[in-house]
Every structure is written in structure tokens, then in C-alpha cells.
Amino acid sequence: MSEKLFPITVTVNGEEYHREVEARLLLSDFLRHDLGLLGTHVGCEHGICGACTIIFDGEPIRSCLIFAVQANGHDIRTVESLGTPENLHPLQQSFHEKHALQCGFCTPGFLMTLVPYLEEHPNPSREEIREAIDGNICRCTGYEKIVEAVQDAAEKLSQKK
């Protein structure tokens, strides 16, 4: 099989990157190790834990189940596109205030799942929130405080509008 490298152009968090990649390079590895965007985490590499969730052309997907070469010409957003430590995104602020993270490893995946979710569902019920995060595993929190944080963020975001 060929050792061929594929030139790709990817827009990540608004910045355009040109790189050459092997076909088998996973997008998660590309973002983390080729671009140095370490906020996207890898927990299982078989599409279940959700830690590697990113926003691909506006949609949350698992970056471990897609090859970097497939991102050619596409737009990606990672957790680095949200707030900064000094200026958190409202969802991040709610996670902070409600103690919705402990080890923090799964958190970027939750955030990248929830940011587009809250855009589409500005006023979710507790039950709907739980369903929305069922594709993300958190071993630390027991989810209770994550649900509270999402409710809180939904309120904050709707007041902003």
C-alpha cells in the first residue's frame, strides 16, 4: 500500500492550515499532534466516549471516526474556539459555576456537543439535556451537575439574546 501523502487545507477555528497527511491519520490525531490543538481529547477511539467531539461544518461529530484527509476543504471548530480563561463562553462559565467538571478530560467533548445543541434547542428540559449528552461519557461527575450547568447556560444564553 502506498506511503502517499495527501495535501489538505483545513480551516480550524477560523484559521487556515495547509498540511500533508497520510490517509490513515485520524482527524483527532491530526488536530492534536499536527496542529497542536490539544483541547480535543481522545478517550476510546471507537466512537463511544465522545471526548473527541468537535464541530465539523457546524455539526458535532467524533474526530476519532474520520480521517484527517477527509477534512480537506472543511471547517472545524474545537474547544479552543470557545472562550479564554479570562473570558469564558457562557456554557463554560456555567460549567465552572455548577462544578460540572472534575478531572476535565471529557469536558471539551461535552462542550462541543452542547454548543450547537443549545443553538438548536435554546430551552431544553432536564430530560432532553440528559438525552443530548448520552453520547458523552463522564466518569467523574455522575452527570448531575453537568445537567444543572446546561440548564443554567440555556438561561444565560437566552437572556443574552
Partner: peptide, 21 residues
């Protein structure tokens, strides 16, 4: 007290094991 470590963790601004190169 809200956690001091949160803000960096929430923004992908801390290094976990695989982030060390």
C-alpha cells in the same frame, strides 16, 4: 468556593498526558 483550576481546564489550556511532546 468555585474551583481555581476550572478556567484553564474548560478552555483546553492544561496539559494531560498525551499533550506532552
Amino acid at each position: 468556593v468555585l474551583r481555581l483550576e476550572d478556567k484553564n481546564m474548560l478552555t483546553g489550556n492544561v496539559k494531560y498526558m498525551d499533550d506532552i511532546e
